[in-house]
């Protein structure tokens, strides 16, 4: 129980420059996850290893268990059986807040930003910082100016040029800019893992490119990134490894170098099976 075996991993199809990423222990692991909803089997014994400094894409048809898997890893669902390990230690997240406190941030498909609040308020929502001294401790006064400055730094660090004014209400932003705010929040507080659920689903070409650049930026800063997407070109562009979910189980893990998009989709739909 205390030590877990790594999943077998072939580095043959991983570019030489990236191989060192896979020397370290996985930061987040799942073993034999099973979850059922009544008679429906959501996850049917899924294993997963995630490494620091990689983008692991999770693809699969509707109902294949992508979201369910991610929700088990981030505390939104609790698996019936199976274990989740963070840096080798077993963890059990009862609610999303627990995962967040462990350094796992999720960018939900619906983004979870508050339209009426400004960018800085959204970045620090439920993590507000107070003024120093009695103004903060006694009167619980918010450090609005400080949060605004630090929010600006977080957005800047991701290289987002289009957002300048942190006092701007989120509802006045474009879809891509909202996505950027959500990603910036995850990046600012996610110390270990950032999970992105369909981050490019509602975006145009240019904005998708911006978001994918952010995803790579997160990886290059040493975070482990899980990217859930329906968009195969985006997956093949941004991912280091690709976990394919099919019918509640894992149909295999491939890399953009080992398989092309067509082969990936064939595995995803069950047209071909991955030799194991």
């Amino acid at each position: 129980m205390s030590t877990i075996e790594r999943l077998p991993l072939s580095v043959d199809h991983i570019p030489e420059t990236k191989r060192s990423v896979y020397d370290a222990e996985p930061i987040l692991s799942a073993r034999n996850l099973v979850i059922t909803f009544g008679r429906v089997i959501g996850l049917d014994g899924v294993d997963l290893d995630l490494y620091r400094g990689e983008v692991l894409a999770v693809i699969g048809d509707n109902g294949a268990g992508k979201s369910t898997l991610i929700k088990c890893l981030t505390g939104a669902y609790q698996q019936d059986t199976g274990d989740v390990f963070l840096e080798g230690r077993p963890v059990s997240f009862k609610r999303p807040q627990d995962a967040r406190e462990a350094g796992i941030e999720t960018v939900y498909q619906q983004l979870a930003v508050i339209p009426a609040l400004d960018i800085a308020s959204n970045l620090y929502l439920a993590r507000e910082e107070r003024r120093p001294g009695p103004l903060g401790s006694v009167f619980r006064m918010l450090d609005k100016k400080g949060m605004k400055v630090r929010a600006g730094d977080s957005v800047q660090r991701l290289g987002i040029q289009t957002i300048q004014n942190m006092g701007q209400a989120v509802e006045t932003l474009s879809g891509g800019q909202r996505q950027a705010v959500a990603v910036a929040r995850a990046a600012a507080f996610g110390s270990r893992v950032v999970v992105l659920d369909e981050p490019t689903a509602a975006l145009g070409v240019k904005e998708s490119g911006m978001v994918l650049d952010m995803v790579k930026q997160l990886r290059d800063s040493g975070l482990a990134v899980i990217l859930i997407s329906h968009n195969m070109p985006h997956v093949w562009e941004a991912a280091d490894r690709i976990h394919i979910q099919r019918l509640g189980g894992c149909a295999g893990v491939i890399t953009p170098q080992s398989h092309d998009m067509g082969e990936g989709v064939a595995i995803m739909t069950g047209a071909t099976q991955l030799a194991s």
Partner: peptide, 19 residues
């Protein structure tokens, strides 16, 4: 701030960690 957040979008507020 949380009052505004809960009133504007309760689901997003919850996912953001607002009680």
């Amino acid at each position: 701030r949380h009052i505004f957040a809960v009133g504007d979008d309760p689901e997003s507020a919850r996912l953001s960690g607002v009680a």
